[in-house]
Amino acid sequence: MSTLTSYPSREIKAMADPEATVQHTYARCAQAFCRFFTVRVGGDSHTVDDLMQQLWLRSRLQAHALRDPNPEPWLWRIARNLLQEHHRKRRRTSGDEPLAQPDLARRLAQRFDTEDLPPETLARKEVQDQLLLAITELTSDEQALLIGCYFEGRTQTELAAILNISERAVEGRLYRARIALREKLAHLA
C-alpha cells in the first residue's frame, strides 16, 4: 500500500477551522505516526492502535487551543508525550524495541555522508535499529518522499504526479530529506 498523500500546505492555509485542520493533518501524517509508534513499541499492533487512538482523541480535544496554521509539529509533541507515558506506565520493555545508541548513530551519520555502506553493515541489527529510529523521527513529508523513492522504488515523475508538485520540487525535497536523515542520525538521543 502506498504511503503517499498529497501535500496539503495550500489546503491548510485555506482552512479557518483549527479542528478541521488538525483532523486533516492527522489523516495526512497517520502513516508516519503509526511507523513512529510501531518501531518504538516493538511492533505490538494493539498498543500502536491504542496510541494512535489516543493521539486522535487528545489532538481533537485540544484542537480549539491551536494557533499554529501547521499542526504537524504539535501533533509530534503529543505523540512523543503519549509514547513517554506509555513507557512510564509499562515500566518494562518487551525487548523488541530498538535501542538508541548515540555513538553508533553518530558514526553511521559520518559514514552515510562519506562512504558506501557495505551490505554486511546494513544487515546488523543495531545499525538497522539506528536507521529505523532516525527515519521514523523525520516529518511526515520527508518520510513519505524517502520511503516512496527508496523503499517503494517510485520515480521522481511518479512522486511528482502523486504529490501534485513539480519534478524539480520533488528533487529539492528529496535532497533536503536526505540531509534531514543524516541530521537525525547525528543527533539520535
Binding site: 518501531v39 511492533g43 546494513l122 538497522q128 527508496y150 522504488g153
Partner: peptide
C-alpha cells in the same frame, strides 16, 4: 538501505 531495512 531501502533494500536492506525492514520498515513496519
Amino acid at each position: 538501505i531501502g533494500r536492506a531495512l525492514p520498515l513496519p
